[in-house]
Design a protein around this nucleic acid. Structure first.
Lengths: 224, 224
DNA sequence: CCACGAAGATAGTATTACTATCATATAGGA
DNA sequence: TCCTATATGATAGTAATACTATCTTCGTGG
């Protein structure tokens, strides 16, 4: 029997649910691949349509525009990450160990999860590093936020924030520290690979060093 | 007598030096205003040309494309910030006080500097918060980096890194902590104003709280 | 007074980001 | 079995974007 993993997605993210059809799943799968290959700026629905073997109009039936598609796949990523965090921390009692686990999940590469055949998680991780913040760094943030498009990101942030509070209930900045960890797990990775002089990880590109940096940062801050 | 402040810019950032002509200065001044108003995605050279009262072709004589213009104004910003950091920390002996000053300079709004009439620093600060990371989050980072387009950012990061080392010569991640402070000074500001649940600063939008958060983060980390 | 370079004026092109319409296939229900 | 709703395919068209090219004019410096 095949296990299926479904991430529940906000209906406002799409015009037609891409998980409910073959074409929809292809849009996600090939969309991720194309954005990964060309970058989000050079990515167009026309190229995606050619890649899949459908037409531009076909894609527009699923997503209003490419920005919405990016928000969709980002939301999927954050939802999936929160699921992973839940699964991997459920059986851990010590909040410090929990938080260490979370940092590792955030900062290290993932393998493809076979239960989601229409998503390739390892290149998705790369996309989110490079393109993720473009989802909200726009003039429409507040509008999109009202439609709860960033809910999965905010949920993850809240969850990590509460683990931080478990470690030290008196710590004053659990949410800001949480968003800092999330963002820096990605930015330090991007810097390490592309602008290495902004980091202390040199050219050896070892993700575990990012983990050590974040652990040092976090546990120095929250220890009483 | 009028004081003039000139930030030295890398020649590869432009096709023709915008500081050497009235039109060039208008491109910078109105460019910043338009990007601030509409966001970088909606910003076009055509709109800018109309705004200034020149033609599209006129702008293209100065900048290859709008992405280069964004890199230019970002580079200017980082150069200007490094200058401010230098000026304001020169007479401080205690590295801890230096670092506090730096954090304040990074995280709080600026007033317009009258010595640079073609740049409005306060709205520039806002642009860098929202659009700054788009300069390097592209497929062309490495290429642009080879042309040293990000040098001012890297210089600032190095400078702050060395102040961190003054505070504690044994601290292991001066550059990563430095880039973390820089990025978070901006991201926490953006979150506070647009996605407040990702922060602990609520809706009161007090930049000083960001300063306190960053100080706590930094000095917890580097204290022995 | 001439030369040169900066700027203005105008035109044109390929691509992007859509919207609209009509035809076809197909799957599910009456 | 037929009917119909719905998804998809095929095609067309439009306004805006992101440029490139060319020719003219204007002003300054030698």
């Amino acid at each position: 029997m095949e296990l299926q993993l479904q991430i529940k997605m906000n209906e406002k993210l799409f015009l037609r649910n891409p998980e409910h059809s073959e074409l929809g799943k292809k849009i996600i799968l090939h969309g991720i691949q194309l954005i990964y290959k060309n970058g989000f700026e050079a990515f167009t629905f026309k190229k995606l349509a050619e890649d899949i073997g459908t037409t531009e109009a076909g894609i527009y039936r699923y997503f209003e525009n490419k920005h919405r598609l990016l928000i969709y796949i980002s939301a999927w990523y954050w939802g999936w990450l929160e699921y992973r965090v839940t699964v991997h921390t459920n059986n851990i009692k010590d909040p410090v160990q929990k938080l260490k686990k979370v940092i590792k999940l955030l900062a290290t590469a993932v393998e493809d999860d076979n239960r989601t055949s229409h998503v390739n998680e390892s290149i998705l991780h790369q996309i989110i590093i490079t393109e993720g913040s473009k989802t909200y760094l726009t003039k429409k943030v507040s509008e999109d936020n009202k439609d709860h498009l960033f809910q999965p990101y905010k949920n993850l942030c809240a969850k990590i924030g509460s683990i931080i509070l478990e470690c030290n209930p008196k710590y004053k900045y659990p949410k800001s520290l949480s968003s800092t960890i999330i963002e820096m797990a990605h930015f330090q990775n991007f810097f390490m690979n592309n602008l290495p002089s902004l980091t202390d990880f040199g050219k050896n590109k070892d993700e575990l060093k990012i983990v050590l940096f974040l652990e040092d940062l976090v546990f120095s801050s929250i220890k009483k």
